[in-house]
């Protein structure tokens, strides 16, 4: 079942066009990786999907309804939650309060709640009273993911969740993804770490200069094809 779909999505920052006619879709329970070099438009794509960047309404269709023009606070109420790049935890709030504020948009009564998140990331339960910014980078990333899950979203958008983290920590975080997906949420992973993203994804889209240059299933795509799509053919 198609959960989220973009129709020739074009995004602009004033006069600068960052995305050109991007078509992608995400099914329930599926993980899709968006890969691409720095400045390719990955973050712009996520900002469009989560409502931080306004688009034409029908360019983004979620659950059969046009959501492209909705604001971020409306989009999250529909069921699209974002794990922003750089985590963006609230420094005045404790770990637990950061998680609780994730449920501000609703979603109470769904699968994810504080107890379930402390099961998924036990270390957060141990440190729940501490200010969120006192935690290590990996633990902060767990809070950011947990905060997004608290609204029990149908789609989870993850922007560079492995950025700046040690490989062992990245593995821990990626190990949590199957559990998140098994609750029926679709996950969109934006990563610069191509191999990490591809190994976790059912499908991928490669973006270059605001356009989709390659898409498919990771096992069917050759390294050369991905290389060309990532850096530009003949690069």
């Amino acid at each position: 079942m198609c959960l989220l779909k973009t129709n020739r999505l074009a995004a602009h920052y004033n006069d600068f066009q960052a995305l050109f006619a991007v078509d992608l879709h995400l099914d329930a329970g599926e993980t899709v990786a968006i890969i691409g070099a720095n400045g390719a438009g990955k973050t712009t794509l996520l900002r469009s999907l989560c409502g931080a960047l306004a688009n034409a309404p029908e360019q983004i269709v979620f659950d059969g309804e046009p959501v492209g023009a909705l604001s971020a606070e409306q989009v999250v109420r529909r069921g699209i939650a974002m794990v922003p790049e750089g985590r963006k935890l609230f420094p005045s709030l404790s770990v637990e309060e950061n998680l609780q504020i994730g449920g501000y948009a609703g979603g109470a009564g769904g699968f994810w709640n504080l107890a379930k998140l402390y099961e998924l990331f036990p270390v957060l339960g141990e440190r729940r009273r501490q200010p969120a910014t006192r935690l290590s980078g990996g633990q902060q990333q767990m809070v950011a993911i947990g905060r997004a899950l608290m609204s029990n979203p149908k789609v989870l958008l993850c922007d560079e969740i492995s950025l700046g983290l040690a490989p062992a920590v990245i593995r821990d975080i990626y190990n949590a993804l199957p559990g998140i997906r098994s609750q029926g949420a679709g996950v969109i992973l934006v990563e610069q770490d191509i191999s990490r993203a591809l190994s976790a994804a059912n499908r991928f889209y490669c973006i270059m200069e605001g356009r989709v240059t390659l898409s498919g299933e990771p096992e069917n795509a050759s390294r050369d094809a991905i290389h060309d799509a990532y850096f530009g053919v003949g690069a």
Partner: peptide, 23 residues
């Protein structure tokens, strides 16, 4: 209170607060 949490979160970072559904 939940409202108080929303006050503090918005004070910290209004853009990220929007991602939580806060206006």
């Amino acid at each position: 209170t939940e409202l108080g949490r929303a006050f503090r979160a918005t004070s910290d970072d209004a853009d990220t607060a929007r991602l939580m559904g806060i206006q």
